[in-house]
Design a protein around this nucleic acid. Structure first.
Lengths: 332, 332
DNA sequence: GAGCCGTGGGAGATCGATCTCCCACACTCT
DNA sequence: AGAGTGTGGGAGATCGATCTCCCACGGCTC
């Protein structure tokens, strides 16, 4: 009933543990093809699986990459984790996803757990630009760590992110090109670098007096709150830029409830290009992150030399996806 | 630069490895309080963390529970994973979540990976009632496995699920109590036990000739397709029961696009009580799973004797959550 | 045919923690 | 005082794999 060990396989194949290991672990050393076949055969027959702990202990490597995201309740982070999982899997590894439940305390705990020898490297989407840095810095001293999608102050490590400022400019240019000039921003989660950067870019482009609605978190509920405020000010606004898709969805549904036409009276844009956007009528214009490229780069940094991981922010170019919430003639 | 080992802590504290281990691992054996303090102190000063692989190898236990869900893109499974994570964490363990991307092949691979000594026990929400059984059975021979939310044929292990038939009856009774009698079902993913049970219960209650729309998968896109079909038949239908929230959301948004009033003309119910439901106007009536209780029971089974894990299905009572999509007077 | 070299198999050390003994010491009881 | 008992520390074995040698063997050269 106990699981078969390498020793058992070796005995069954009539070889030593060393030979069995060479065959099964794929060590780059020649083994007699006949012996190899016998080992493979024995392993299959006994249902042998390498003991992960033993291998990890001996080799000091786990073949696993971890990622800590702020919250899986936000579909954008699910999408992000998925992009990473695909790349990791393609490289023959395994991705472990941890949810920080939007709490820096839980985030620190998850980082700690993953780092006690469970992963070879760690990606972190920090909950907070200010408060996540310490835990990340501590982690980065013990294993390769790369920040993803967001950065954190004092993290001591590199971040692979979107160029949020460019994204905001893309949206504003698009809206202005459509003749919308009374643009408001619905921003959330300024504690995160992405939230803060989007707000900063908007303010930089539109002036400090520009209309903004600030919300604590990236949730659809926050989006509904924003919707009510915008509906009250409908006369002053002809477009709303939302800092996240989940906000946009809540906002649009609330606006429609208040009989505000979208995009007729107010155009709306989202951010992150999640599947949620297709849910409503009209579908919502948004910003697509080049997640595949970002994932590839982040994993390369993780495996590369530590010197490349100095604290620094790499920004990837966003892509505008136009849908009917801004341009009624746009095709889905 | 290399991580401190227990040996280093012991040396720094002037004790043997055994004593250091007793202090740090919390072995139930008395240690001189003074020595204990010195060990704690040394561990803190050196930044010592137990090497997870070494401990797992020696003790044969990892403190980790795994769960494989069909897809994190469905918010219900995120919610489910979250309920499990809370219970596991409360018990001092860690939950690892794997996404099967709705593929039985990837599901089998994820089960395999987690089981090679990475987890003490495994929960599986099987992708398919027919095709997932084999992989689960194989897994169940090697470690404690419990199915969650869905069962699978020939899995050889116990399943902790919702009483889907009771849930469908709750919905039908509710609708009929409101005077709705021309009820259609939008069912998806009959390959899963939950999809199949919901369809079967509906057919049992309403007769084989009852109106049904069958869809391949639990997605909002499928919900939109269903919406178009229902809109065409609007004259024959005054209520629609959806087999999942994601379907209901897509359906309602499509119906509204076709100027069908909800619930005026057609009442709609969802299934799973996810946050999505609050997104639309009207919010959607749904079925709430007792996830906390189910999680507790599943984890107890995982830790309990293997004998309790004979192939069998345990069903938990659903709860009806009435919202405005069926009863316009209902409060949110 | 003796020495060399290349090839491939095996014995034993090793990774870092925990567990199983055994032993020293102090204390109690007769 | 000597034996018995209990407490707590330490040396060494152990978990299961991989890695580092070393060695045997066969073929080759001169």
């Amino acid at each position: 009933m106990t699981a078969p060990r390498l020793l058992d396989v070796a005995a069954a194949a009539g070889v030593s543990r060393a030979t069995a290991s060479r065959v099964l672990a794929g060590t780059p050393r020649n083994v007699d093809p006949d012996l190899a076949r016998r080992v493979e055969e024995a392993a299959r027959r006994l249902g042998y699986r390498t003991n992960h702990s033993a291998r990890a202990l001996r080799t000091g490597t786990t073949g696993t990459v971890g990622v800590v995201v702020p919250s899986l309740a936000n579909p954008y982070f699910v999408q992000l984790a998925d992009a990473l999982a695909q790349r990791v899997r393609a490289a023959g590894g395994q991705l472990v996803v941890s949810d920080a439940a939007n709490s820096t305390a839980i985030e620190a705990e998850q980082i700690e757990t993953l780092l006690s020898g469970r992963v070879d490297g760690l990606l972190v989407v920090p909950v907070s630009a200010a408060a996540s840095g310490a835990a990340v810095r501590a982690a980065a001293g013990r294993a390769p760590v790369v920040l993803f999608d967001r950065w954190a102050h004092g993290s001591g490590t590199v971040a692979v992110t979107l160029d949020n400022a460019a994204a905001v400019r893309l949206l504003l240019d698009h809206l202005e090109g459509l003749g919308r000039h009374r643009i408001a921003l619905v921003a959330a989660d300024q504690a995160s670098s992405s939230g803060a950067e989007r707000l900063a870019a908007f303010t930089a482009a539109r002036g400090a007096g520009a209309a903004t609605v600030l919300l604590p978190s990236f949730t659809t509920d926050a989006g509904r709150t924003a919707g009510r405020r915008i509906a009250e000010r409908r006369a002053e606004v002809d477009a709303v830029v939302c800092g996240a898709d989940v906000l946009a969805v809540g906002l649009v549904s609330t606006l429609q409830r208040s009989a505000v036409s979208v995009p007729g009276e107010i155009a709306v844009t989202g951010f992150d290009d999640t599947e949620l956007l297709e849910l409503l009528d009209p579908p919502i214009t948004s910003i697509r992150h080049p997640l595949a490229d970002m994932a590839e780069r982040a994993l390369a940094l993780l495996q590369g030399p530590a010197a490349d991981r100095a604290e620094e922010v790499e920004r990837f170019a966003p892509q505008l996806v136009v849908r009917a919430s801004t341009d009624a003639d746009a095709h889905a």
